[in-house]
Amino acid sequence: MEHTLILSSILFAAGLMTVIVKRNAIMVLIGIELMLNAANLNLVFFNRNNPALSGHFFALFVIVVAVCEAAVGLAIVLRVYKYYQTSIPDQLTELKD
C-alpha cells in the first residue's frame, strides 16, 4: 500500500467535501482544483517509471483544462455576483421551476 495513493484519496475526499459543504462559489472552485490535483497525483505516481511519459502528458492536459475551468468559472462567479449580489450557489435557483 502506497502512501501516495492514500494522499490522493484524502485529497479527493477533501475536495469533494469542500464542493458539497462550502456555501461559496469560490470555495467550490477550490474544491474542484483539489480533486483535479488528486487525479494528477495519481497520474504522475503511476507513470513514475514509465519512459513513454503518457501519464505526464495526461496530467499536463488536465492542468490546462483546470486552468480553463478556473478562468471561466471565476468569470461566471463574478458575473453571477454582479447580477444576484450573492455568490452562494444554492441561492441561485432560477432554473428550479
Binding site: 464542493v19 458539497i20 467550490v28 450557489p89 444554492d90 435557483t93 432560477e94 432554473l95 428550479k96
Partner: peptide, 9 residues
C-alpha cells in the same frame, strides 16, 4: 430538482 447545485453533486 431544487436548483441546489451542491445537493445535486
Amino acid at each position: 430538482q431544487g436548483g441546489k447545485i451542491q445537493l445535486y453533486i
